[in-house]
Design a protein around this nucleic acid. Structure first.
Lengths: 339, 339
DNA sequence: CCAGCAAGTATTAGCGCTAAACTCGGACAC
DNA sequence: GTGTCCGAGTTTAGCGCTAATACTTGCTGG
């Protein structure tokens, strides 16, 4: 770890005060008179002193570090969130330790343990599965500050997240309003047990008096554009008569768009396509993509704020609260009939 | 930090051994006979013991944590790299602390100090500017393991990165081979003093006997698609007669592509466009985008491997080495004349 | 004129852990 | 029988820091 590190003791030796006096002076304690304080601080600066946070953490019992568990940082949405979260935490003096669970529960559990072992002051988690939270509940019970970034309202754990159900419902309702009756669903989250978007889809169908046809749902094994294309393949080979498709994220949708281009299916004339997340590239896809947008920055900021509240609450966490942010539709050419 | 944490002492009290015996047993010391070891390990498991890494770090003088400094995680390329790095580090038992410098030198310096204060065992850095490394050199001189993820070959600091100069040179040479003589450059990195891609561009021009015309270079204030579009605007308003444009990353190129679509400029017939990084969406842009690709995963893996070597070297770091990875061209419709 | 107090500083203990030094009771050799 | 060695632990010290307590002065007031 590099060469001899400068410690309080070194400043003490240099100035002739005791280590404790130095410690107090550097922390602006009123118990040390101003002239002494200045003297010590100058000596510290000359020696290029940097406090050892590890030692500090051991005694103060807080590390000023938050653990961020992501499923997969490749997803542009998570990426934006991670950035916004790091920013919000840094502004409050917290460091961000991050790890990806690779969408497996096992790794998620390992990650959470690793973070605990490193004594993070709290965690922000994108759980792999929104339902299997049994490894997280004990944490909350032990008064450990945890905020989820996707969740069920009835999870019993604090969460700040987008209302995916409502977003999906809005998206599908829009497709229905555009006159579509046979609406496909390309959903890569289902296999992780995350059914919010699918529920929104079903709700919109039901409200419009449309039947759900399981042939209209594809369930590709990942969430990249390649998978979106594969999902389209699966869907279209079934000859379901679909005239619109709702993809649960924009990467999938962009892949679906590409499938249409390669198969001579005109978008939106022959097929309307709707995404979710409104990533930067949605607007620049072959056909500009309609999508569901939400304020990543605000969500992240709120989640961090909530985490801070929990940390401040010490050993009496308040009742768990789930905040759902209502997303908005962004309509572009991929679903605009006149286009 | 949650409720009463289980310490070695608690296991000691429960089993009747001393804390030190417990510590040794949990670390599989041969000094403790197997039956005792098992007994102690069972007790630890029952109490749900998790070692306190902070305390461990204080005495072992290593935190098993690496600091990762990114300029801006929004960039899909950095994102991929971050993911690959986290994976490679986790595989070696290291945690990843990350922070973004927001492309300012000041924040980069603060971040590096913060990491040092947290006693990270080493750092991986995407420097904001490839030239201003004066805050990093002292680290190396103090035997602090640091590996850069972009750099000059003569930086005097270890680095593992893509050979951007060569990538740009290949890209521009390709455009020249396609018959272009007036080739624009949209480069958002120049303002940070990172001129590798521009140098590659110039080298290709020179080799082909083409003059450089400064009117052909645009320097937008950011690296998103919006900025790419703005860069095109700037370039085209100058009536330079450009028939091709090299954009220093894919987001810019996708923005440029969009500018062409909106202004009725046919790609590649009236204008060829070339990107850099080959992000997922390059293939799915309005016109599939030609780009420069490199193996992110391998680069990250190599960088981590190098960092491990430096860490293992203790207080006698080997001569700094810079490894440049040679990227490949991916030709798609945006530069293919026949398309 | 000295108890009482405050200001300024030093000493001590301890966070949870590890490494080094130490103890103690056999077994064994001669 | 006694010195030596070994196995199976225990005790002690210390990582760099903070918090609590202790100790000096010099002063004030009754």
């Amino acid at each position: 770890m590099g060469k001899a590190i400068v410690r309080l003791k070194d400043i003490a030796d240099k100035t002739g005060f005791s280590t404790n006096t130095v410690s107090l002076a550097l922390r602006e304690s009123p118990r040390i008179p101003a002239p002494t304080r200045v003297l010590i601080q100058q000596a510290a600066a000359e020696l290029h002193y940097l406090p050892n946070q590890i030692a500090k953490s051991l005694v103060s019992r807080q590390t000023m570090t938050i653990g961020l568990v992501l499923t997969d940082i490749t997803n542009p949405t998570l990426t934006h969130a991670a950035q916004a979260i790091e920013l919000a935490l840094a502004a409050r003096g917290y460091g961000t330790l991050f790890a990806t669970s690779n969408n497996t529960l096992e790794e998620e559990i390992r990650t959470v343990e690793m973070f605990r072992s490193r004594q993070v002051d709290g965690m922000l988690i994108y759980p792999t599965s929104h339902r299997q939270l049994d490894h997280i509940r004990p944490l909350r019970r032990a008064n450990y500050p945890v905020v989820l970034l996707v969740a069920d309202p009835d999870a019993g754990i604090d969460a700040v997240c987008v209302d995916e159900r409502r977003g999906a419902w809005k998206a599908v309702r829009h497709l229905i309003e555009m006159g579509h009756r046979r609406i496909g669903l390309v959903d890569s989250a289902a296999r992780h047990g995350n059914s919010e978007k699918r529920e929104g889809y079903l709700k919109a169908l039901t409200e419009a008096g449309l039947d759900y046809d399981s042939k209209l749902a594809a369930d590709p094994s990942g969430h990249t554009s390649k998978h979106g294309s594969a999902g389209m393949d699966e869907l279209m080979s079934r000859k379901t008569g679909a005239t619109a498709v709702f993809c649960t994220n924009d990467s999938l949708a962009i892949g679906a768009l590409d499938w249409c281009r390669r198969h001579g299916v005109a978008v939106p004339r022959d097929m309307a396509i709707m995404g979710f997340d409104d990533i930067e590239y949605a607007a620049f896809a072959g056909v500009p993509l309609s999508s569901v947008r939400y304020a990543t920055r605000e969500v992240s900021e709120m989640a961090v704020e909530r985490l801070m509240e929990l940390i401040a609450a010490k050993d009496a966490l308040p009742q768990a609260r789930v905040s759902l942010i209502d997303p908005d539709l962004i309509i572009r050419d991929s679903t605009r009939l006149g286009a």
